[in-house]
Write a protein that binds this DNA or RNA. Sequence first.
DNA 1: TATAGTTGTCTACACAAATAGACAATTAAA
DNA 2: TTTAATTGTCTATTTGTGTAGACAACTATA
Lengths: 247, 247
Amino acid sequence: MTTHESAGIARWRQIADSLRADIAEGRLVDALPSEMRLAERFAVNRHTVRRAIAALGEEGLLTAARGRGTFVAPRPGRIAYPVGPRSRFSENIGAASREPGGSMVGATREPASTEIAGLLGCGIAAPLARLDLLRVADGAPVIVSTLWFEEARVPGIVAAFAELGSISRALEALGLAGCRRLWTRVSAIAAEARDAERLHCPLATPLIQTTSLTAAATGEPVQYARSRFLGSRFELLFDHTAGPAAD
Amino acid sequence: MTTHESAGIARWRQIADSLRADIAEGRLVDALPSEMRLAERFAVNRHTVRRAIAALGEEGLLTAARGRGTFVAPRPGRIAYPVGPRSRFSENIGAASREPGGSMVGATREPASTEIAGLLGCGIAAPLARLDLLRVADGAPVIVSTLWFEEARVPGIVAAFAELGSISRALEALGLAGCRRLWTRVSAIAAEARDAERLHCPLATPLIQTTSLTAAATGEPVQYARSRFLGSRFELLFDHTAGPAAD
DNA sequence: TATAGTTGTCTACACAAATAGACAATTAAA
DNA sequence: TTTAATTGTCTATTTGTGTAGACAACTATA
């Protein structure tokens, strides 16, 4: 089986991806090697390197100066995002000293799928409130998340969120204080067209996908969530030493 | 700024990626829509769809039958991988009823970087034993991981692993039973050329990257690890209810 | 000032990718 | 058997990608 793994991806794109990874990991700082050197390193024509650099320039990662060289823009750094029973977006981003933000990009009703019905413990095709949120840090979108609630259990959740601007506060307002996250599942996926558009990132950008189940203080499941984080901007932190009883 | 987010990736590749995601998520089963329908859906010529299908066929995800249609091969499903203080590869894969396996693809010595020295609590440039492992499920490579140990603390770790075939058993043999994982950090990255080659996956495939710190029963850090999981084959499970003190 | 090294721009050519149309081969159902 | 729908194969054309060479514009340094 002679499959070329790189099939279908233009050479300049591969070079841009490689340089972008080097920049994200901090392996490449300050001045970039000259176009000729890079062309030699990647065994490619100078024009091909130039195209890769142009793409990264449009992303704001590089700036070129005629006669001087090309330079790496100061990188934003990864946002440390602790995940635990009490995780809330606003706290996490706040702790990282970045302005939190978020906007509702969609609020619909849909019947429960077999999977979600099983997780939330409601009937199949029971009416769910679905909330689509876009979360922003430093003025750029970084997370898209979709939340599902059984409508009968939390009536008016959408209106409450719209008013209070926070899921946890909206739940408290509905008499559900002290909600706890039961578990989190993590996988990695490639950004599809819709995600890429919303997150303002190139197609096929690696995203961290998490799904999680949150329960009320009574233990009753309340919220099922599916989030996608910009892989290059985040690092999820799981602390295995802090137990559920400890805070 | 008129950036085309899809620049540099061939249309057939995008279509193949989209279909692959649909298959991986279970949104596409049994018979595929006909080539003409797919061409309409993606607003593309039938030949472009055919190329995407051919690529997925080479990956073993689809089989085409003249006159009948194209069919989705039964998908392997995601491997559920619980992560906690006692996570071990062999247990996790074993629990998923797949044959575990792993091979050492590299064992070198290198001086401790500032970062790793800080985590392991040893001096900068102290000699480390570095172990590169390739882990296999169902005959296909699915994880590459790199482990670092301070050599003075676990002399002969490489030989012990080579003999026993398991990190935890090797540590026990060196008198370090009851090691616990302190924390895990998770991010998503795109497969680079080296990873793609080792994991036998296309370039830029989304990978889950974890870094973790493991300590001995005394609390002294022993092992720092960096692993990359094939994003489409895994789902990491974090249980926030089962704490170390509780249960 | 002179020189070496850098980025920016232009032309030209070869090859891959995508589109378009036509028809053959096979299958399932009317 | 006939018909419609499917996948397989061929030719041709247009657009995108990568290579090659040359030269201009600019910068820092000897």
